[in-house]
Computed example of a mutant assay.
Amino acid sequence: MVEERNKKPQSNKRKKNKKSTTKHSTNERKIASRSKPTAKAANKQSHSRNRKKQQRPISKKRQPAKYHKTKNPVYTVLFNVIFYSFILFMIVGSIMFATTKNANKSVLGYRFFGVLTDSMVPRDPEKQKGGFHSGDVIIVKNIAGNAAEVGDIITFRPSITSQAFLTHRVKEKLDHLGETKGTYYITQGDANLAEDVPVNEKQVVGKKIIVVPKVGAFLNFVRENLIISIIFLISVFGFITIIRYYILNK
Score class of each variant (00 low, 15 high):
residue 112 F to Q: 13
residue 26 T to R: 05
residue 55 Q to T: 06
residue 34 R to Q: 04
residue 118 D to F: 00
residue 70 T to S: 10
residue 158 P to L: 04
residue 31 I to E: 01
residue 141 K to G: 11
residue 240 I to M: 08
residue 5 R to A: 04
residue 243 I to Q: 05
residue 117 T to V: 01
residue 116 L to A: 14
residue 3 E to I: 15
residue 85 S to T: 13
residue 60 K to H: 08
residue 35 S to A: 06
residue 227 I to C: 00
residue 217 A to W: 05
residue 16 K to G: 02
residue 119 S to G: 12
residue 90 M to W: 03
residue 51 R to I: 05
residue 196 D to Y: 05
residue 16 K to W: 03
residue 235 S to N: 07
residue 85 S to I: 09
residue 44 K to Q: 02
residue 148 A to N: 07
residue 107 V to C: 04
residue 189 G to T: 07
residue 86 F to R: 11
residue 105 K to H: 10
residue 240 I to Q: 03
residue 228 I to N: 02
residue 137 V to L: 10
residue 130 G to H: 10
residue 74 V to W: 11
residue 162 S to P: 02
residue 120 M to A: 03
residue 132 F to A: 06
residue 112 F to D: 12
residue 109 G to H: 11
residue 99 T to E: 10
residue 173 K to Q: 11
residue 244 R to P: 05
residue 118 D to N: 10
residue 10 Q to E: 15
residue 204 V to E: 07
residue 91 I to L: 00
residue 30 K to F: 02
residue 40 K to E: 00
residue 243 I to E: 08
residue 46 S to A: 12
residue 58 I to D: 02
residue 131 G to Y: 05
residue 19 K to R: 08
residue 226 L to D: 00
residue 83 F to Y: 07
residue 165 F to H: 02
residue 55 Q to D: 01
residue 53 K to A: 09
residue 87 I to N: 04
residue 102 N to M: 11
residue 141 K to C: 14
residue 93 G to E: 08
residue 246 Y to E: 14
residue 39 A to R: 09
residue 200 N to Y: 11
residue 25 S to K: 06
residue 173 K to I: 14
residue 221 F to S: 08
residue 26 T to N: 02
residue 183 T to Q: 13
residue 133 H to D: 13
residue 22 T to I: 10
residue 249 N to K: 13
residue 210 I to H: 12
residue 66 K to R: 09
residue 184 Y to L: 01
residue 230 I to F: 00
residue 30 K to N: 03
residue 188 Q to C: 09
residue 153 I to S: 07
residue 43 N to S: 12
residue 164 A to M: 06
residue 179 E to A: 02
residue 40 K to A: 03
residue 138 I to A: 06
residue 222 V to T: 02
residue 142 N to T: 14
residue 186 I to Q: 09
residue 186 I to H: 07
residue 178 G to P: 01
residue 194 A to T: 14
residue 32 A to L: 00
residue 162 S to K: 03
residue 151 G to W: 11
residue 161 T to L: 03
